[in-house]
Every structure is written in C-alpha cells, then in structure tokens.
Design a protein around this nucleic acid. Structure first.
Lengths: 231, 231
DNA sequence: ATTACTATCTCACGAGTAC
DNA sequence: TGTACTCGTGAGATAGTAA
C-alpha cells in the first residue's frame, strides 16, 4: 500500500533530482514551486507535509532552509517507482485474437498457392505455406478492433503481381502463434472476400492437424508487437 | 511537461498491469475501484476522463466494457516513469562535507601512528597513513548533521587496543575523496578531543601537499555511500 | 528577498441512486 | 449484477499578506 500522497510524488522527485537524498540541499519554496508547476504556497505546504510524514528533514541555517530526503522517503519513492516499472514491464506485448474456426472455402488456399505469392512467402517467411488457409471467425468486437489496429504495427509485406489475365493484391503477414504453440502468420489481404470479423492464417503445416482442432473449435492467436515504450 | 493528472497515474498503471496496452481488456469500474483503493464512482470518472483525454479507448460489447491503452497513454506513462527513474538514478550517492582546514594539533597524528592502529590501517585500508591527520572545521549545520548520519552507513572498523598503560578506542573509517581528487579516509574516533563540528581525515600522503592547500583553505570531502534503493 | 498563515475556490471523491 | 448521473464534503490549490 502506498503511503505517499500522489500530489507529493513530483515534489519528492524534484528533491531527488536536486540531490537531496544524502545531503542537505538548500532550496526555496518559490523555486521548488516553479519546478513542480505549482505555487510557492503549494510547495511550502508539500514540504511541511512531507516533513511531518517523515519523508524529508529540514534544517534552517539562519535564513536558508536545507532539505534532505529520509530513508523512509527513499523507500516510499522506490515503491512507487517499482509499481510503475512492473506495470509497464509486465505488460504483454502481443495482440490477441479469439474466435472459432470456420470452414475454409478453399478460395484463399487457391490464391495463396499461386507462384507469385508462394515464391515471396518462401523468401520472406522462410516457408511455402501449407495449401489451405485457416479462417477464424472472431468472437467479439474487441478482436475486430484489434484486427484494424494491426495496421499500426510492422508487417512482412508480400507484394501483389499480375499474371497477364488479372492482378492480385498485396498480402501483409504478421507472424503469430496459434494456441500458444503452432507458428503461423496472420495475413491481411488487399482484396478479400471476407468481412471484418474473419481472419486468415497460413502456416508451414496444416494448422488444424497440428492443433488437433476442427471447424467450430475455439482458437487463440497471438501476434507479437514491438513493446518499445514510445519516446 | 506532464499532461496526465497525478490522480490518474495509479489507474493507468493498473490498466497496464491488467494487460490493456495492446488488447482490449474487460474491466468493471468496481473492480478497478478496488485495485486503485478508490470508489467505483471514482474509477468510473477516471475512465471517462482518461478516455476523453485520449489516454484510453473503450468498447462496449453489450453489458461488458473493455478498455485499451492508446499510444498517447503509453507515451504519457513512459514520461512519468522516466521522470521518476532519472530523479532516482541521477541522485548522487555520496555524503558531502565542506569546511576549512584547521591546524592539526598533532595529537591525532600521534595516536594514529601507533602500531596498534597503523597495523590495522595497513591491512584494512591498504596503507599506513601519513603521520598527521587533517582537521576540517565544518562550515554549516547541515554538515554536522551529515557527520552524525554517517553512522548509518557501512564503515571500515579499526578496533581499539590496549598497550598496558592505557586503552585506545575504535576508529571508524569512511573512504573519501578530497576536492574530488585525493583519496583519503574520514575517521570517526570513539574518543575524540574535537567537538562535533570538526572532522578528521587520514591519507597515504600529506593531504595539504597533494591538494596544495593550507590552513584556512576551503575544502570539500565526499564519502561514497551505497545508493541501493532500500527494499 | 524569505516562509507560512488565512481565506477562498475548485475539483476529486464517495454516497445515493437512476438506468 | 453493470455504468454514470447529481450533490455534499473536504482536500488541495492559489491569492493575499504577516512576520
């Protein structure tokens, strides 16, 4: 449980930044106020409260007032820090989809086995996919939204081509894991015959066989995304 | 400048902890309220405000509401995190003393050169000190306080002894740097003839010579302390 | 210049409650 | 069960000012 009031976090952080952990550092309430973007009076009150709660000590030498952070203050600050640290760091960095397997119509499979695509899959994914895409009907709005937001993340781009008779659109591939075991790729097609609520997967092997699942089964797909804390 | 209201920090942290960065996570305002030690109403308001400020997105599927943190939310959280991180990490981990050199009375020097002490200095500090301690009159109350608080930090202990005629007290040594250049040790004596406002230093060489300082000069001493964030 | 009091205001929170 | 209104209270902010 956090003892330190949230309003005091930045004040205490500022004192740390000023080097007040192990030494008494001279400080005025008006300069401190500016640093924490509050009034001089607010800074004064913060210091009074931090002092009476035992997070800091103050010493006046004549006019000047010096402040030092106590061990208690250090502990409390470290607590808050580690709460934030762990909530940021334990955040899983994948986009998850849940849905049910629907019967593939063979159509996707047909296109994906075309030489113009297969060649690229081989060089960019490292394998020629099993001929037959796995179609998954998403269970919920949030997964449809997640599908849309995939656009924001880096993908392996397979370009479209033309065979003279007609042209074929690009395919974006997102390496993914099915039921946390089988490696596959979620593919977004430039031209698709599915609505938003269906995703397609390709894999080196037959995913149904590998996962021992059949049409109608529940399935979970995870697409890794870079977890870089922005900025 | 921080945009995020302090009151929302823990709420957003909790959402991160629940995995809401890359996926919509179902959540109720009452459970969230419990997690942040606030009421259901407060949690509800936090979500509304976080949403209208663009830090989170919400999606209702019937009764259930799911929440996802936006990139803006992630950026803002990372900012706060790095503010705290840098204020904790850039905190210098030494105790500093400033004062003026006062004429050593030779007394300290006499004791410190006794075999019972010198032997221990040699094995524990690695050298037999120059015969003559440097006495520094501390400039300000805060340094006297700092001297007192040295007790809390680990020291090299030189034990007392007896030569038959009389006994000599222990000496605590704190490795230190003088004027950020010369290696020395601040010593605390069990039995001292000085008052609180004077500290004594020993060193392998003559500190005055090494630093080209004389009696009356200003001097700065830094004692390293372990910066481990407690707990 | 300082710090910190008093008065005042705003807004965060929880209680009660509608939906 | 849920979410989110309104409203009363008081914590936390600033302004003005004393010392």
């Amino acid at each position: 449980m956090l003892e330190l009031k949230l309003q005091h976090i930045l004040t205490l952080a500022e004192l740390f930044a000023k080097g007040a952990r192990y030494n008494f550092v001279p400080i005025t309430t008006s300069s401190l106020g500016k640093s924490i973007h509050r009034s001089q009076q607010a800074a004064s009150k913060h210091l009074l409260e931090l002092e009476s709660d035992g997070y800091i000590e103050r010493l006046r030498s004549g006019k000047r007032v010096s402040v030092r952070i106590t061990t208690k203050g250090h502990v409390e600050m470290s607590k808050i820090f580690s709460v934030l640290k762990s909530s940021l760091e334990t955040s899983p960095s994948f986009v998850e989809f849940k849905g049910t397997i629907v019967s593939g119509m063979g159509e996707g499979a047909y296109y994906m086995s075309m030489k113009g695509y297969a060649r690229q899959f081989k060089s960019k994914l490292g394998y020629v996919p099993f001929p037959g895409t796995l179609n998954v009907k998403l269970k919920d709005k949030e997964f449809i939204e997640a599908k849309r937001s995939l656009d924001a993340y880096p993908a392996i781009m397979v370009s479209g081509f033309s065979d003279g008779k007609r042209s074929y659109g690009w395919v974006k591939c997102y390496p993914a894991r099915v039921n946390n075991s089988v490696e596959a790729a979620l593919i977004l097609l430039e031209r698709t015959h599915h609505d938003d609520s269906v995703i397609e997967l390709i894999s080196k092997e037959n995913i149904k066989k590998m996962t021992k699942l059949a049409t109608g089964s529940q399935i979970t797909i995870r697409v890794r995304v870079p977890s870089k804390p922005p900025q």
